[in-house]
């Protein structure tokens, strides 16, 4: 218990009445580490990830069954808004709010929650968050420009800064580098390794190399089931299940 920030128990998710997209998943996520979720397309990895900050609430047809504990509290019983403040999310494509400047994007979490800050607090948050994603030096003189004016990799780092501004306990990332080039990807990976001292990270990735490079623990999912979960190096070097082996060998997915 002590070391787990999130505990998932008997989680089932379905998009339509008969088909389960996530089947009876049980997993504990370790605090201040990076946990990767891998698996072929359509295996339910994004579906699982999005359950953790109650994104499925937005769609009436999706049914989520089971329990997810954040520090021992069942998030299914919390207000969705409170859950999302504590569990941030970064999406596949960089999506800074097009109507806001770089600085406003960082502060968006506060604006959207109706939290008022004075000038000094604002400046402090902007600087802290942009520094933590390594964007401060690049954008400190152009903070009033639109966020969409940055390059793809910079935009994604801005989105991470935006998610970090509210100081979440967990950061969910849904293939955050799949739309980026290798150099931008490497920078984000470096960044995640630095960030994990402050925030626990769960990352969905298609890229096995990425999981191997940055994740402490890795999950392998197949057809909605959690096939294998454990130490990343062990999972890659010595997978216990046939399906994991064939996925890693490139036969599935």
């Amino acid at each position: 218990m002590s070391n787990n920030i999130i505990e998932i128990k008997n989680l089932n998710i379905s998009y339509s009445s008969n088909v389960l997209s996530v089947k009876n998943v049980n997993a504990n996520i370790i605090k201040n580490e990076i946990t990767a979720i891998m698996g072929p397309s359509g295996c339910g990895k994004s579906t699982l990830l999005r359950a953790i900050n109650r994104m499925h609430d937005l769609y009436n047809n999706i049914k989520v069954d089971g329990q997810i504990f954040l520090n021992g509290t069942d998030i299914m019983k919390m207000q969705a808004i409170d859950v999302r403040r504590k569990i941030g999310m970064v999406f596949q494509r960089p999506n800074p709010f097009p109507n806001m400047s770089i600085a406003e994007n960082v502060l968006a979490g506060y604006t959207l929650n109706g939290l008022h800050l004075n000038k000094h607090e604002k400046a402090e948050i902007i600087e802290r968050c942009l520094k933590s994603v390594g964007l401060w030096e690049e954008v400190k003189d152009v903070q009033t420009k639109k966020g969409t004016f940055l390059s793809g990799g910079q935009q994604q780092r801005l989105c991470i800064a935006r998610a970090l501004a509210l100081q979440p306990e967990v950061l969910l990332m849904d293939e955050p580098t799949s739309a980026l080039d290798p150099i931008a990807t490497a920078r984000i990976e470096e960044l995640l390794l630095e960030l994990k001292k402050d925030v626990s990270i769960i990352i969905v990735t298609h890229n096995m190399g990425q999981a191997k490079r940055i994740a402490y623990n890795s999950m392998f999912m197949y057809l909605g089931e959690l096939i294998e979960y454990g130490d990343t190096q062990k999972l890659f070097n010595n997978p216990m299940h046939e399906q994991t082996k064939s996925y890693l060998a490139g036969h599935v997915g």
Binding site: N53, M55, I81, R84, M89, A108, G109, C159, A163, L166
Partner: peptide, 16 residues
């Protein structure tokens, strides 16, 4: 994703 990322920041529907 624009709407989702606003809600993911804990924004209410109206503010979004």
């Amino acid at each position: 994703s624009l709407k989702e990322s606003s809600l993911a920041l804990g924004g209410s529907y109206g503010k979004t």
